[in-house]
Design a protein around this nucleic acid. Structure first.
Length: 294
DNA sequence: GATAACGTAGAA
DNA sequence: TTCTACGTTATC
């Protein structure tokens, strides 16, 4: 009973001679540190039936103390800004994805017309939870998923199984999000848009703001390529490592393949793009990319 | 658009 | 200091 998943796709050159398995742990220790510090169990094991929204946004000292065991190494309490801090901007979206997989959270459509789809979404989520293997191996490109992605469902988050996960449109303004152009976006993206991105590690150059102060994005550590353990040693990047300075093509993080400013970027950086469930679309793309790339 | 080459940020 | 690998630019 292994949790490893075979991620060597059909086009993977090392398929024949490599036991390419995806460890559940990210490849590099630093990735374990820097990304998604809260696993599904974290979100599930810390239910708070009556969530104090203000407390979430600005935890009280008592809450901060409660969140930190006395004799463990102090760890930054999960504040809302921290939720969006990862290079992929997905602490929160990551949590949502995990929850959906576990059947604890479902996106429901805004209109009754779409109610069927919404039910389908939650059923799909539950099915995925019940059959995660199918999710991984099937590539997530089935017709149901496509329908789900293109349904353009509204911003009506409905937490299931209790109100401990405070996803409600009403909370987004409280959490620093604002509606603009049909998108929910971080309020910080308004006035300090570029600065916000730069602060999160996106270079001004890549954002069209010059060439100074460049910062690297980090690998997400969780996508299929990131979980590859071995270089293929056959791709151009591997063969030309000395001069190319590039990681093996088959280990190139899906997140980093996306051009900053490209599709999905804004939603990932600024938070959720609730129009069309883009925040799940990115993850669905991640899954399908992994399946298609091989 | 894909690839190669290089500069350099960030980690070890 | 060394190494890895991201970001950018040049070239095809």
């Amino acid at each position: 009973m292994s949790t490893a998943v075979d991620i060597a796709g059909p086009s993977s050159p090392d398929q024949a001679h490599s036991s390419a398995k995806i460890p559940n742990e990210p490849l590099r220790p630093s990735l374990k540190r820097s990304n998604h510090p809260y696993s599904l169990s974290h979100y599930i094991s810390t239910p708070s039936p009556a969530v104090d929204v203000k407390g979430l946004i600005q935890p009280s000292p008592a809450q901060q103390r409660a969140a930190q065991p006395a004799h463990t190494k102090p760890r930054r309490a999960p504040s809302w800004p921290d939720m969006w801090e990862s290079p992929s901007g997905l602490h929160l979206a990551h949590a949502a994805e995990l929850l959906m997989r576990a059947g604890l959270l479902a996106l429901t459509p805004a209109t009754t017309e779409q109610a069927g789809l919404g039910a389908q979404s939650s059923q799909t989520a539950k099915r995925e939870a019940a059959d995660p293997k199918g999710d991984e191996e099937g590539g997530g490109s089935g017709p149901e998923e496509e329908e789900e992605d293109s349904s353009g469902c509204g911003a009506d988050f409905q937490p299931f199984l209790g109100a401990w996960f405070p996803f409600s449109p009403a909370l987004f303004p409280l959490a620093g999000f604002q509606m603009g152009g049909g998108h929910w976006r971080s309020a910080a993206m308004g006035a300090e848009g570029i600065e916000g991105l730069v602060a999160e590690g996106y270079s001004p150059g890549s954002l069209g703001g010059g060439s100074g102060g460049r910062r690297k994005r980090k690998r997400c550590g969780e996508c299929v390529p990131c979980r590859r353990q071995t270089n293929c040693e056959q791709c151009s990047s591997c063969r030309n490592r000395k001069r190319g300075h590039q990681i093996c093509k088959y280990r190139k993080c899906e997140e980093l393949k996306r051009k900053p400013g490209g599709p999905g970027f804004e939603s990932r950086v600024s938070g959720f793009d609730l129009r069309g469930s883009d925040f799940t679309l990115g993850l669905a793309q991640e899954r399908s990319n992994g399946a298609l790339d091989g």
